[in-house]
Design a protein around this nucleic acid. Structure first.
Lengths: 197, 197
DNA sequence: ATCAAACTATCGTTTATAACGATTTATATA
DNA sequence: TATATAAATCGTTATAAACGATAGTTTGAT
């Protein structure tokens, strides 16, 4: 029994859904399944009845729920009372292309602000070719870029996600007749692409 | 912050010693160090002041202590109230050679009995060449053996430890004059060995 | 003053655990 | 009956924990 598992259990219980919980907790549904399974094995009982494609919390689950909440609350209390890490404060400046910002950032910003109300977030849209220099100078704290060839030396880089590149054309464009399109077929076409990505 | 870490912290705090805690928790001292370090980094504060070869709990550590106890107690409460795993009961029959039993078993038996007061432990001294058959028949539940060549098929085998074999002889024995002894040097000597190990 | 003993910290490695993505299975719903 | 939805399972990868060995300190004894 670990706090991580109890928290996962609590979120599942709140939503009565493994899938929703996995989204809230930003992890794979299979991982939620695995954690609940571990907890059930540890306590040697069922926490949820799987009825069709829904789940219902069991009596034992109900009992565990209040304990899980208490323990979760207690950890928050610990962090606020024991820890001398006063709430993070200051500002965080992030550079991200609009395409990324509009899709991914809303949820992230919302959550971040909930957890760090005293941190001011500065989001700068569109990328910049001077990224490395900007990062090193401290003008920006982190950046998201869309590329497959980053090899900065003094900067931490982490691959987060891969995206497919989709070609869309007018129905009357000759390309829309073809079953598959090669790069060379694009010669001479006007392309609408995210600016500096 | 995980329950495991809080428990380790509590034991360290109770004993004011990483080393003692590691023995109580049956883990390496380096692992205790690592867990406390993780906890300190997580909470962003020092839990113990390292004064020479001793440690002293800090104010923050003192505060955390009561929370850690509460959470630990709560997990016990969960197990007794929520879990339907009634205390393990029954009996467990173990075969182990005296040499192992006398050195390792006392502590293990003590702890096991604390955690499982309703389980009767049967320790059978000395090994037996019919181990596999005994295990399969259920006459014994588990066995400790000293050997380096176990390849039973229907039995779970796990290597727990390696032990050095030490040669001791009377001072007047000719072997005690030699700097190193080979197996062939033992020819013709009477050897005192653990019976069937 | 020096040595040995007692502790914690650190390092590199191994092992165990957790997370993941893809797929399967089961069940509602259209 | 096909489709969509949700949880379980499986094989793989990535992350975290534990380990043993040893370095680095400090204390106490000689």
């Amino acid at each position: 029994m670990e706090i991580r598992q109890l928290r996962t259990f609590r979120v599942v219980a709140d939503n009565l859904s493994f899938t929703k919980a996995s989204k809230i907790l930003y992890m794979a549904q299979s991982s939620v399944s695995a954690q609940i399974k571990l907890l059930e094995e540890d306590l040697n009982l069922k926490l949820f009845d799987r009825i069709g494609r829904n789940i219902v919390i069991t009596d034992a689950g109900q009992k565990l729920y209040s304990y899980a909440r208490k323990i979760e609350d207690m950890t928050k209390e610990i962090r606020s009372e024991v820890s001398n890490s006063q709430q993070a404060q200051g500002s965080l400046t992030i550079r991200a292309p609009e395409t990324i910002a509009s899709v991914y950032m809303p949820d992230i910003v919302k959550e971040f602000h909930r957890d760090n109300p005293q941190v001011k977030l500065n989001l700068i849209n569109c990328t910049d070719l001077q990224l490395k220099e900007e990062l090193n100078s401290g003008r920006i704290d982190l950046a998201f870029v869309m590329t497959d060839s980053i090899n900065f030396t003094d900067v931490n880089v982490k691959m987060l996600k891969t995206e497919n590149l989709i070609l869309m054309s007018h129905l009357e464009n000759k390309l829309s007749k073809k079953k598959s399109v090669l790069f060379k077929d694009l010669a001479g076409e006007s392309l609408l692409l995210p600016s500096t990505d």
